[in-house]
Each structure stands twice: as C-alpha cells, then as structure tokens.
C-alpha cells in the first residue's frame, strides 16, 4: 500500500516524515519544482513528482491502485475536490481524504461522495471557542451540529450555585439532563438545589450556548 499526498507544503512534509518512519511508501505530488527539490533532500525515501495532482493525466502516470491511500492537501478546495473525485471514480479508492479550507464546503463534499474531510479552520475555530468558554466547560460531543452537550463545573461564585433548577434563567432550548455530585449522578427535578462542585450535564441547541454559560457561570 502506498500513500499519495497531493499538494500541501509543511503539512505534506511532516505527514510524509511520519508515514515514512512507520514504514509506508509515500508519493508526494506538487506543482512547485523548487519546493520539490527541497523536499527531495529532506525526505530521501519518498517519491516526489512535479505536476498538478488535480489533473487526471498526471495521476494516471502514478500507478495508483484502489488499495492505496489518497490525501488531497492543496490550499484550494476546488483542486482537492477534483483530485479526490478522480481518485475515487477513476482509481476506485473508496475513501480518499480531502482537506477543506472553507468549512462550509464540508456538506457539499459529502454529497459528492467525498465523505472523509479534514477542516483545519474548523479544528482551530473549535479550539478557540473552547478557550473562550473557560476551562470549566467540556464539550462532550464536539462539532455535532444539531445539539450541544456540555459538562459545566460549578464553582463557589457561579451564579447558579444555591439556586433551585426551576429558578435558573437558562434558555428554553436547553435543559440540565443530569448533575454529577461527588461521583454520583442525580437526575435533577425543579426543586433540586445546585451546589458548588456539581458537574452539570447540559443539553442545548448550539445557537443558545453562550446564554446557557452566562446564566450558569456568569460572564463568559
């Protein structure tokens, strides 16, 4: 089994290095001849091809088989889409992997049969959001679009502490599903009082997340 890496500068280099160390055969395809010279010096065991990896006539020269791994890493979504579609439809690779720069394109790629995608923008955005929403909050089901599930830890000064569940001003589109108190799960009722140290398992529509945090933790 060979691994084909199409485009991508630093990511391609670091990926190739790791894969080569694990004993895989790696083929890098890149348009930039200068870049390729540098890569060839640093990655002695890799096969490096100069050419546009989103063009069928280029890919056809590489003896790609359906058992190989195919990863499209260029900075252009259109090139990644076309390259992985060729990999799938012409060479029969079932799950080519495509990097997506505009995260909005993910659903469209899926619809076109490219189901395995990685979006650095999404990953970064999520990491940043998690930094913003304090460390007390753990996102339990990351990046699931329809519903957000959070574990929120109550501290002494959290505005929700000392209140009954029914008194909390959380949005209608959210619910406290469970409270973890001293390692035990409590299913809360309206009159359950929130205590410091409680871990609240909250389900909410993603759109109201911030108001949930605000009413439970204060300023977020």
């Amino acid at each position: 089994m060979k691994v084909f890496l199409i485009g991508g500068r630093n990511i391609a280099y670091h990926l190739a290095r790791r894969l080569l160390n694990k004993g895989y055969q790696v083929v890098l395809v890149n348009k930039d001849e200068k870049l390729n010279e540098g890569l060839a010096k640093r990655l002695k065991k890799a096969i490096i091809i100069t050419g546009d990896g989103s063009k069928r006539h280029v890919l056809e020269q590489l003896e790609i088989t359906s058992k190989d791994l195919f990863v499209a890493l260029t900075p252009n979504d259109q090139d990644n889409l076309v390259a992985s579609l060729i990999a799938k439809r012409v060479f029969g690779i079932e799950n080519p992997l495509a990097l997506i720069n505009d995260p909005d394109n993910e659903a469209a790629f899926k619809k076109l049969g490219i189901g395995t995608t990685v979006s650095p923008t999404n990953i970064l955005a999520q990491a940043i959001e998690e930094r913003i929403f304090k460390e007390q909050i753990t996102n339990l089901i990351p990046s699931f679009e329809q519903i957000a599930v959070f574990q929120i830890e109550m501290e002494e000064q959290s505005p929700a502490v000392g209140k009954r569940v029914m008194e909390l001003a959380i949005p209608r589109e959210s619910v406290i599903g469970a409270i973890i108190r001293a390692g035990e799960a409590i299913i809360p009722r309206g009159d359950t009082i929130i205590k410091s140290g409680d871990k609240l398992i909250v389900l909410s529509k993603p759109t109201v997340q911030s108001s949930v945090f605000e009413s439970l933790l204060g300023e977020v």
Binding site: S54, N76, D77, Q78, D79, L81, V82, L85, N105, A108, K111, L112
Partner: peptide, 10 residues
C-alpha cells in the same frame, strides 16, 4: 477548470 467543476457539481 477545477473551480468550474466544483461550482458546477455543487
């Protein structure tokens, strides 16, 4: 080409 293909397919 690739932009046209992607736009058209989407």
């Amino acid at each position: 080409d690739n932009t046209n293909i992607m736009t058209a397919l989407i």
